[in-house]
Amino acid sequence: MKIGIDVGSTGIKIVFVDQTRLIWKKVVPTKPGQSSLVQELMNQGLAACHAQQADILKICVTGYGRNLIESSSKVVDEISANAAGITLLTQGKARTLINIGGQDVKIIKLDHQGRVTDFRMNDKCAAGTGRFFEMAANILDTPLEEFHVKEDVEAVSINATCAVFAESEIVSLLAKGISKYSIIKGINNAVAKRIASLAGSGHLEEEIYIDGGPARNSGLIESLEDALLCDIKTAADPQFTVALGALFAD
């Protein structure tokens, strides 16, 4: 049994894997004291799988807090981990991967062996990231899974260059009586545009996958498909690809 842990900026994701089969997974919000939090999660997992400490073959850690975990046997950067994870899940079919994390957005190009050939990552800024959606979901009082909007809804224009300003923008739109769904569509479009500009002029090779927490928002994926002019598939368990990949990155 192997354990993959992704200590992200907003959530800690943990997976228990037998060979290549996922047997247990869990995500908790990141809090100070990641190390003890991880230990607690591992204990929970061991209990759930009816396993002992001795059954653990290796523990691979990735994510922002990867160097804070002492019990790790391997530390991988999350870009390589992400690529390895998606390759495993798609049997090597993914050529491009869009990851929307808590604090960053990554576009990763990879080969059939899951090796990263090129990547782009936004600079430290919350606009267009998971944090942004979290904020929007809070204000709109709508879970991310319900961010899918019917096609005939007219989108409002939202400026997503700064997460802080977007927040007040949403509040004032609501005050003006604009429908929640128009705003949601506007948010999806704005974020999609931002991600598309991160991709730049470079051609994105098919097949394109998306993962990370916000990948649960199918409305965003639709907007993104329109912005990038291509089909995008969602990874199974989009939140856990990175933790899984940590175990399989070369």
Binding site: D77, S80, R115, F119, M121, K124
Partner: peptide
């Protein structure tokens, strides 16, 4: 090619390290 935008601050080091490590892997591959 890897572009890194940064400032005269230390706080973004972790973000940069992630990219540099991934870049190193692409070069090794």
């Amino acid at each position: 090619f890897l572009k890194i935008e940064t400032d005269y601050v230390k706080e973004d080091e972790q973000n940069i390290v992630t990219r540099l490590e991934a870049f190193n892997r692409t070069l090794r591959s």
